Computed example of a mutant assay.
Amino acid sequence: MLRHRWTPVVLVALALFVINVIGRVVVYVAGIDGDQQMFMASLYSMIAMVLVAGYAGFRWTRRYEMVRVVGEVGLAIILGSLLTTMVSPLFVGLNPFSGGASIYLRMLGVCFVLCAIGALVGSLIVLAVGQDRTGRAWKYQEQRLRAKPRRTAKR
């Protein structure tokens, strides 16, 4: 049972990683040299990663309590960010630490913050619409209370 609980977390982390690897390979194969083209390619890759994190936040918030959402989606984003910054440069022959520790930590921070914002927006959409577990439970209680006819007091 525990194995099935963490499988989606690993899949989201791998999806974030694969998106970044695909973006890096496309840039490498296309031979993009200009800073503007490199920036646009990495921007598209990051937008796709934010959308995946947003969908994960959306889906988890609909299904589970918020504590579990924060823990599992947060772990998926942390794993995805670490894989993105440490392993994906190796696919195109780059050293992740070539610019120094400060550059690496900045890249890790940017990746984590953008994916976290995406997951937060996905969760907030579910909360705003009232489709989270608590919102649905409150709606059910309201409907149940309104469906009962009022009892009159006997004298």
Results as ranks from 00 to 15, higher is better:
136 R>K: 14
140 Y>E: 08
95 N>H: 07
141 Q>P: 06
105 L>P: 07
88 S>K: 00
127 L>Q: 03
49 M>Q: 12
100 G>D: 06
100 G>I: 06
143 Q>D: 14
128 A>P: 00
94 L>D: 13
136 R>V: 02
30 A>G: 11
59 R>C: 02
79 L>G: 08
64 Y>T: 05
15 A>N: 13
55 Y>E: 08
47 I>A: 04
15 A>K: 04
32 I>H: 03
45 S>G: 06
108 L>H: 01
67 V>K: 14
47 I>L: 15
23 G>E: 05
10 V>K: 05
25 V>N: 03
26 V>R: 08
114 L>Y: 10
83 L>I: 11
155 R>K: 11
55 Y>I: 00
18 V>C: 14
153 A>K: 14
17 F>W: 05
11 L>Q: 10
72 E>K: 08
117 I>D: 00
58 F>A: 06
38 M>T: 14
150 R>I: 10
79 L>F: 14
89 P>G: 05
25 V>R: 04
66 M>W: 10
133 R>K: 10
63 R>Q: 12
154 K>H: 11
4 H>T: 12
110 V>R: 01
150 R>L: 15
69 V>R: 12
45 S>E: 02
73 V>K: 04
27 V>A: 12
14 L>Q: 06
154 K>M: 10
84 T>I: 03
20 N>Q: 10
147 A>L: 14
13 A>V: 02
45 S>M: 01
88 S>M: 05
104 Y>A: 07
59 R>I: 09
103 I>P: 10
71 G>Y: 05
19 I>D: 14
121 V>M: 05
25 V>M: 05
146 R>K: 12
92 V>I: 12
151 R>N: 07
128 A>Y: 10
137 A>L: 11
145 L>H: 04
142 E>Q: 10
21 V>C: 07
20 N>T: 12
32 I>P: 01
114 L>A: 09
30 A>Q: 13
44 Y>C: 04
16 L>I: 06
100 G>W: 09
147 A>F: 08
106 R>T: 14
41 A>I: 03
38 M>I: 08
7 T>M: 07
